[in-house]
């Protein structure tokens, strides 16, 4: 269990401010944020390799704020793996063992288990120089886990990998976490990774935490405009509320219920906006006439911008759907938004 209280790190051009965080024992926690949000800095502060300005870090009830890194029992895996280039794979993995006085036999079994689990049997005597990105990452994981840390810190372990290795390492991480029962704290800028791996997550932006919660909750109910956009809600609008309606510019969106007080925004996922050529028969709520502004090819899907009133909505269409609809720019269409798909915050 990691408890962080009012952690502050002031650098010349950046600051982490008043970070409060509590991570449960054995949890897979992700720290999510864009580049430059201070994620790696926070990780290094927990590992003890960067000095902190003020605050307190406790692991399993023990205050480690003033402990040197080697006494913390916290391992770190960097994005670039940081393997020792002058040591073989096996010597990398066993590097830290001499500092941890444990039963020789059980240590040997533990290392053998890790090597086998991470599929490194054939590589143990190789130099680290010719390993692929995925192999390097697996060696770094084995090295970090070999010393049986109480916490494993992962600094964007998937970002630098080729897509095919990425999936491989992602599955390994998930399985390892389930099998070893060690607390994992992973830093990433990719929400998809968090969805797959994380149990709870904290969103970091410009040195501040914007939201902490279970991944699904952050995904479905973002608390700030930043988080909403970060988790892929392409349509975030400031809104005024009137009974069960949200007023966005000149449009009035029907909500599924009475919104709580102190709400200022609505957000809608691009995939929840339906585009039709004609107004559908029946009495649909939240159907607005609009004009197609732009169609952008996003690879597996198309992003279509539609202006309805003064508001520009961004919707997602599959290639085949777009082909059927035949939507040239400037075409008149209708958009429909289910009340339940409108998130109020």
């Amino acid at each position: 269990m990691i408890e962080i209280e009012t952690l502050r790190i002031r650098l010349s051009d950046f600051a982490l401010q008043d970070i409060d965080l509590s991570i449960q024992d054995g949890e897979f926690f992700t720290l999510l944020g864009p580049t430059g949000a201070g994620k790696t800095l926070m990780l290094e502060a927990i590992a003890g390799v960067v000095p902190i300005t003020s605050g307190c870090i406790r692991v399993n009830g023990r205050d480690i704020t003033d402990l040197s890194p080697e006494k913390r029992g916290i391992s770190i895996v960097y994005q670039d793996c940081a393997l020792f280039p002058h040591l073989s794979v096996l010597k990398n993995i066993t590097y830290g063992l001499r500092y941890h006085k444990t039963d020789r036999q059980s240590t040997k079994e533990w290392v053998e288990w890790l090597v086998e689990r991470l599929g490194l049997e054939r590589l143990t005597h190789r130099s680290t120089f010719y390993l692929s990105g995925g192999e390097k990452q697996r060696v770094a994981l084995a090295r970090a886990l070999a010393v049986n840390p109480s916490v494993l810190l992962l600094d964007e372990p998937l970002s630098a990998l080729d897509p095919n290795f990425r999936e491989d390492i992602r599955n390994i991480l998930k399985r390892l976490h389930q099998e070893v029962g060690i607390t994992f704290l992973m830093v990433t800028h990719d929400f998809a990774e968090t969805l797959f791996l994380g149990q709870r997550t904290a969103i970091l932006n410009r040195g501040k935490i914007e939201q902490i919660g279970p991944v699904s909750e952050v995904f479905q109910r973002p608390a700030t405009p930043f988080v909403a956009e970060f988790v892929g809600m392409k349509n975030v609008f400031p809104a005024a509320f009137k009974d069960t309606a949200a007023v966005v510019d000149d449009l009035e969106l029907r909500l599924s219920g009475l919104p709580a007080r102190d709400k200022h925004y609505v957000a809608i996922r691009a995939e929840d906006i339906v585009i039709t050529k004609e107004r559908l028969p029946g009495n649909g709520t939240n159907v607005f006439p609009g004009k197609v502004l732009e169609v952008i090819d996003r690879g597996f899907y198309y992003e279509v911008s539609v202006r309805a009133g003064k508001v520009v909505f961004r919707a997602m269409l599959t290639k085949s759907a777009l082909f059927e609809l035949k939507l040239p720019e400037g075409k008149d269409v209708h958009i429909e938004v289910r009340s339940s798909a409108i998130h109020v915050f």
Partner: peptide, 9 residues
């Protein structure tokens, strides 16, 4: 940093 985190002074 990695070396320190693994227990080396």
């Amino acid at each position: 940093n990695v070396s320190r985190s693994l227990g080396a002074s």
